[in-house]
Design a protein around this nucleic acid. Structure first.
Length: 222
DNA sequence: ATGACGATTTACT
DNA sequence: GTAAATCGTCATA
């Protein structure tokens, strides 16, 4: 099964809208040898830019690292952290508006054996289809070989990494969970803003994503 | 030049 | 539950 590749317009929206429309879509990575890896996006977080103390672009910071966030919607922002991990964001909004959505977890769909090989035996503890394979922002980058070489690329045109729209409408609100973001305790009041979205009940969401669903998820954006 | 700190993961008590 | 791993980035000097 294959979906249509997401174009510029898909990404040119505010981060909360993109976060919700990304749920259930498919992230595709094509390796140098043509191997196709794919996963359904099951958990994301919105980063709101200059106002958002948790965002790398908080206060309008514009350093070499954060520069991709100021690019066109659909730009990949891949950064290295903790001396050993990579995280992958989809830039959205408008040019020069440094907002993005962090991809936090995937449900493996294709190339599972290759992902397991890249994660190593530790990641395969649960066997094939283990929820440990791509249940975290750095885990999914390792599994799909997403690193700084892909920082700044255009997801709309690059053949190595892109997003396929496998559902025309957003996931129904009743299937979405919503909670504060993970690992941003330093962000003051922004740490408690409910800007994480995930697919309720999906076993591949990251740890800490067990927050209770909101009584009423916000309106869907098609 | 230097030091503090991560949008994390894993192993271990 | 807590702690270690490990280094690029950024603010300060």
């Amino acid at each position: 099964m294959r979906g249509e590749r997401c174009g510029r317009g898909f990404f040119g929206v505010e981060p909360v809208a993109l976060a919700k429309r990304l749920l259930g879509q498919r992230l595709v990575r094509v390796l140098a040898d043509g191997t196709r890896l794919a996963g359904e996006i099951v958990e994301v977080e919105a980063y709101l830019g200059v106002e958002d103390r948790a965002a790398h672009s908080f206060g309008g910071r514009r350093t070499a690292r954060v520069e991709p966030m100021y690019g066109r919607p659909g730009t990949a922002y891949v950064y290295f952290t903790y001396g050993m991990h990579h995280c992958f964001n989809v830039v959205c909004g408008e040019v020069d508006e440094p907002v993005a959505v962090l991809i936090r977890a995937l449900e493996p769909v294709a190339g599972i054996a290759e992902m397991e090989a890249r994660r190593g035996v530790k990641g395969v503890k649960g066997g094939a289809g283990s929820s440990l394979l791509t249940s975290g922002p750095a885990k999914l980058c390792q599994a799909m070989e997403i690193d700084r070489r892909l920082n700044g690329i255009d997801l709309v045109t690059d053949s190595r990494l892109f997003i396929e729209r496998v559902r025309e409408r957003s996931l129904p609100a009743v299937r979405m969970g919503n909670s504060p973001r993970i690992g941003v305790a330093y962000a003051g009041s922004w740490a408690s803003e409910p800007l994480r979205w995930f697919i309720l009940g999906n076993p591949h969401v990251s740890r800490g994503a067990r927050a209770k669903p909101r009584k009423r998820a916000r309106d869907c954006v098609s």
